[in-house]
Design a binder for these strands. Structure first.
Length: 728
DNA sequence: TCATTTAACGTTTTT
DNA sequence: CGTTAAATGA
């Protein structure tokens, strides 16, 4: 034992006393209240490594839950690093992943006990929405009165609270809730018919499994001797129950989180889970990590000023050994345009002076719509940027379409995927034909593939539709028979060829080319799943949907799809929500006005206002040394123009921490660059190509400002001295 | 069935 | 204002 203790000393080095105590507290319930920038991930990974290195458990007996695949990958990486190359074998790493990923593994193994097919497919938001639409149509519900999105949200909320359709129908109050109560069971039937589970089911049905099947529960409880949950403030009711079930036998549960950073309550997350931990788990140890290693004292104190105005929060006081640093800059500008230009000017000045790289900066906003003005300024002044979030890789139409084909091949009864691809490429099968086909199929009692194969005997369909459907049946059947012989990559490749899919995507526009590149990117992702087959590939794509994650996984793969847009040295633009967990040397928070941040929909609800304040807090604590808080006197909103007072959050900050300035700067100051100016020689009516917007026609030209119409993108006003344009 | 015009709408979104 | 989804015409 003495030798063992000596061996693990290195795992405590470089930790502060609280962090070290957290690492050494391996037994019993443990709550780590980890403030922003307090070394949370470091503590977590060291604790995991410590449990392993002291032989308290094998990797097999440890479960580590994170909220994102990125976080889980990061943890995996750091543990491997800590424990050295000799332990680099993947099998020696603990069971790590997201709640959803872990539930999938449990359900694949034991789901049959509650009637879940082993090869169930996972429906994402888009699939769920399509299914709800289908259910609404079946029930003749007016989609305008009760939008599918709203019904989906209500049903999802119910599932997260573990409310069954029957219970939901009893408690439904409002007309919308009553409608959702009608749709709910039909939607559940659709899931069952298609052998599918949605994201909420993954958690809820695992809870059901562990609740109703005692032997299975015992098995998993025995396996997971030590359980760790990250971002515990973001757990919902179902996840809370899942954790309870998994840890009931041994009580070795460590949760980490920060209620001050809870910003997803509108999605069912309940930060009271973290506040109630001590009463939920008897004999819990509580450790607060309050030393901040990230921000200057001015930034940290300013953030603290803001969060202090919340009533519902745990008590802690972050501190830092760092110097005060420069004050937080509160900047008043005239408009969203001026806001963007103020940012451009500061970024450019710092980069030109050699003080910073583009990648040191982040621009944060409350709503995605705010990114446009910023993007426009970045484009016209040629500053490199990348946007995090927005349209996700997996949600792109062309990707969803290919995936739907693959899913249909894998699971030929998936009617949702079927409807998606049945007329793609166009086979002359529209809504009418589909209706006819569906009622005929139901009448005959055929399943989907069977019906497609025997479609010739469906007299009510047009010849063209019959032809198209049997053609699709051939594709499904022939590729289906090869699932086990071909790798996902080859299968996908041949499918694309069979469909002549690239030709279908190319329409002469740069957007068309981007679609082709995206599908090629998907192909290169598929190449990584040789060993797990089509099923494994489909699963991974269902659970890992972010482009960044996919790029990360490639780890230096020969992807030529990554182009200028994701060049690493660029300013990062993203919502405040997406910024959680990240840090940057310099941060701009934009739109600090009433109705923007705090958002108008949160102004009259105390708890929503507190969440807005937490959002502000999250944003502020992303900054290491420079923090800019920008508010505009007025900004364009839905076509009109609105003028709003500065955000109340600005007034929360002590004067001693801030420097206030006004920046109504004229565009001229931006052009005072020593770069040689190369002004494109344009005339009205000429056709040009823009790096981002594609091909366009010059409508008007006034000095250096050209109004250009881009097909599919609308008209843009661009400064031809800076815009990345070329003549065609 | 499909492409184009018109109307409605306008937080955040780890999986 | 700019984008998206439904409604309309060919």
């Amino acid at each position: 034992m003495s030798r063992g203790v000596k061996d693990v000393d290195f795992l405590l080095e470089g930790l502060n006393p609280e962090q070290a105590r957290a690492v050494k507290t391996t037994e019993g319930p443990l709550l780590i209240l980890a403030g922003a920038g307090s070394g949370k991930t470091k503590t977590l990974t060291h604790r995991l490594a410590y449990i392993l290195a002291t032989n308290r458990a094998t990797p097999f007996n440890i479960l580590a839950v994170t909220f994102t695949n990125k976080a889980s990958g990061e943890m995996r990486h750091r543990i491997t690093e800590l424990l050295g190359g000799s332990r680099g074998n993947r099998n020696l790493l603990p069971f790590m992943g997201t709640f959803h990923g872990i539930c999938v593994r449990i359900l694949r193994q034991d789901g049959q006990h509650i009637g879940i097919p082993r090869n169930f497919v996972i429906w994402d938001e888009v699939d769920r929405l399509a299914a709800i639409k289908q259910a609404s149509r079946r029930l003749q519900i007016d989609e305008k009165k009760f939008p599918p999105r709203l019904l989906a949200a209500l049903i999802s909320g119910a599932k997260n609270e573990m409310v069954t359709p029957a219970e939901f129908s009893e408690i439904a109050g409002s007309p919308a809730e009553q409608t959702a109560a009608k749709v709910f069971p039909v939607y559940e039937d659709l899931l069952k018919e298609n052998g599918a589970l949605d994201f909420d089911d993954l958690i809820a049905r695992t809870v059901e499994l562990l609740t109703t099947q005692a032997p299975i529960r015992d098995k998993w409880q025995r396996q997971f001797k030590y359980v760790m949950i990250d971002e515990y403030q973001d757990t919902n009711a179902a996840q809370y129950q899942l954790v309870k079930l998994l840890t009931a036998a041994h009580h070795n549960i460590a949760v980490v989180g920060d209620d001050w950073q809870s910003i997803y309550s509108w999605r069912g997350a309940d930060y009271r889970n973290i506040l109630n931990f001590e009463s939920d788990y008897e004999g819990a140890t509580v450790i607060k990590l309050e030393q901040n290693y990230r921000s200057s004292a001015n930034i940290l104190e300013a953030a603290h000023n803001v969060i202090s105005h919340n009533q519902n929060r745990s008590q802690k006081k972050l501190w830092t050994a760092a110097a005060p640093g420069i004050p937080v800059q509160i900047l008043q500008v005239s408009s969203e345009r001026a806001e963007a230009e103020a940012i451009v000017r500061r970024v450019r000045a710092a980069v030109d002076a050699g003080a910073r790289d583009y990648r040191d900066f982040a621009v944060l906003y409350r709503t995605n719509a705010q990114s446009r003005a910023i993007e426009e300024a970045f484009v016209s002044y040629s500053l490199p940027y990348r946007i995090v979030g927005g349209v996700r890789f997996y949600e792109r139409k062309e990707i969803k379409d290919v995936m739907a084909y693959l899913r249909l091949i894998y699971q030929p009864n998936d009617t949702v995927s079927f409807e998606r691809v049945v007329n793609l490429p166009p086979r002359g099968i529209g809504r009418k034909s589909l209706e006819v086909f569906d009622s005929w199929r139901r009448g005959e009692g055929y399943d989907l593939l069977e019906a497609m194969t025997r479609v010739e005997s469906c007299a009510a369909l047009t010849t063209k539709a019959r032809q198209g459907l049997s053609e699709l049946a051939d594709i499904i059947a022939s590729f289906g028979s090869q699932i086990d012989n071909l790798t996902p990559e080859v299968l996908t490749e041949r499918l694309l060829k069979k469909l002549d899919y690239f030709r279908h995507l190319i329409d002469g526009t740069p957007q068309g080319e981007a679609r082709v590149e995206n599908v090629k990117e998907l192909l290169s992702v598929a190449a990584q799943y040789h060993d797990v087959g089509l099923g494994g590939f489909l699963e991974e794509v269902a659970l890992v949907s972010d482009l960044d994650t996919i790029n990360m996984k490639e780890s230096g793969g020969a992807s030529k799809a990554t182009k200028d847009e994701d060049r690493p040295n660029a300013v990062t633009l993203m919502t405040l929500h997406s910024a959680k967990g990240l840090e940057f040397p310099a941060v701009f928070i934009t739109g600090l006005e009433e109705t923007v941040l705090p958002h108008s929909r949160a102004l009259y609800d105390a708890s929503e206002l507190e969440e807005e304040r937490r959002l502000m807090y999250v944003g502020m604590t992303r900054a290491r040394t420079e923090l800019y808080l920008i508010h505009a006197v007025g900004r364009g909103l839905h076509g009109g123009y609105t003028s709003n007072p500065p955000s109340r959050f600005l007034a929360d900050i002590e004067d001693s921490r801030v420097a206030t300035a006004t920046d109504f700067g004229s565009p001229d100051s931006l052009q005072a660059s020593d770069e040689p100016r190369y002004v494109l020689d344009l005339a009205e009516g000429e056709v040009v190509r823009h790096k981002i917007f594609g091909d366009g026609t010059v409508l008007t030209l006034e000095g250096e400002t050209a109004t250009i119409y881009f097909k599919g993108k609308g008209t843009k006003k661009l400064n031809i001295a800076f815009a990345p344009l070329e003549k065609l």
